[in-house]
């Protein structure tokens, strides 16, 4: 009798797990929609501040005073930066004049960087520019909140553009550290190393433009600061119908190598009936399976239990015959 109850609980667990997983997926897609809207709103705000070149003002280009407690520190830091220019009479008025390394590589005195920008070179696969779009990308720790188990993220994990479109990226770093918007796999005859790269210490914005090739493809976008991509700062740009998905994008594509998870015996407020607690624990363990590996292990475990339960039954059949 006890065994039958166990199996019923286990089956109930599987059911609960499935519904839970579906619910999560729905959550994600609705959240992404929300993010899309806020992105577009900000977009319009930003146009005045950031064009194709970097604002050379030392003050934060983005006003996040309300959101960032670190702003005081930041402000002070920049005061000292000002004194730098005063003492050494270095003119940062025209960034292009002083920090224009070559056409491909623009950097200001704070390390704000645009690399591999392409304003006018048409890819060979394009007759003309199909459309001009502006996309605002936000980067920061807070965007990782919706992806448990990550530490940094972009506000969106995927962008769609038409083949041959000219895309201007407004990259808003909302943290007080460096972040990058680095795109790989672009045609090397147009982009050095096939790369387009924006980098900025936040809170601040940097903008850059590329012209995407004429064929359907999917490009990796990430931040290359050690373990930012591994811990969530990863996305993809889908051109046209896109190509092969990039793996391990939070909430979008599965990880190639997954971690092992197990339920911990954490202290919790105790329930009234002990019977109920036991049942809840079991369901909890089942629903906590969040990666495919563990789900498989769960199923294996269940089948093993079923098998164990069935062994005595099988044994009984020949026994009865012999008794007869």
């Amino acid at each position: 009798m006890a065994k039958t109850t166990t199996i019923i609980f286990l089956l109930a667990g599987i059911l609960a797990f499935n519904t839970h997983a579906t619910a999560q997926q729905q959550d994600k897609s609705s959240e992404q929609e929300k993010q899309d809207h806020s992105g577009h709103d900000m977009d319009q705000d930003k146009h005045d501040h950031s064009g194709h070149s970097i604002s050379t003002k030392t003050g934060p280009a983005v006003d996040h005073a309300g959101e960032h407690s670190a702003d005081d520190d930041h402000g002070h830091d920049h005061d000292i930066d000002h004194s730098t220019h005063d003492t050494h009479a270095m003119d940062h008025g025209d960034m292009h004049h002083h920090h224009h390394m070559d056409d491909d590589h623009i950097m200001d005195h704070e390390g704000t960087m645009i690399m591999g920008q392409n304003l006018d070179k048409l890819p060979s696969s394009c007759q003309s520019i199909s459309e001009e779009v502006e996309i605002t990308v936000r980067a920061g720790r807070k965007y990782s909140a919706k992806f448990p188990g990550t530490a940094f993220a972009f506000d969106q994990q995927q962008w769609h553009v038409k083949p041959c479109s000219k895309v201007t990226w407004h990259f808003i770093n909302e943290d007080s550290i460096r972040h990058q918007f680095m795109m790989h796999g672009l045609p090397k005859y147009l982009y050095k190393y096939g790369m387009f790269h924006l980098e900025v210490t936040g809170p601040k914005t940097v903008s850059g433009t590329i012209i995407v090739p004429g064929s359907d493809d999917t490009y990796l976008v990430h931040c290359d600061i050690s373990h930012h991509m591994e811990k969530g700062m990863k996305a993809q740009l889908v051109v046209g119908k896109g190509g092969k998905d990039i793996p391990s994008i939070p909430g979008l594509t599965p990880y190639n190598v997954t971690d092992r998870y197990e339920a911990e015996d954490l202290p919790k407020v105790s329930n009234k009936s002990s019977d109920k607690t036991e049942k809840d624990l079991l369901t909890l363990e089942m629903t906590n399976f969040s990666d495919p590996d563990l789900k498989n292990y769960g199923i294996m475990l269940i089948s093993a239990l079923i098998g164990l339960f069935l062994i005595p039954l099988f044994k009984k059949i020949p026994l009865h015959k012999k008794n007869d």
Binding site: I177, I225, S226, P247, S248, Y255, V257
Partner: peptide, 12 residues
């Protein structure tokens, strides 16, 4: 800055 060396990646 603080950087990690020889850490795990979900990609390979």
């Amino acid at each position: 800055e603080i950087m990690e060396l020889n850490g795990k990646t979900p990609d390979f």
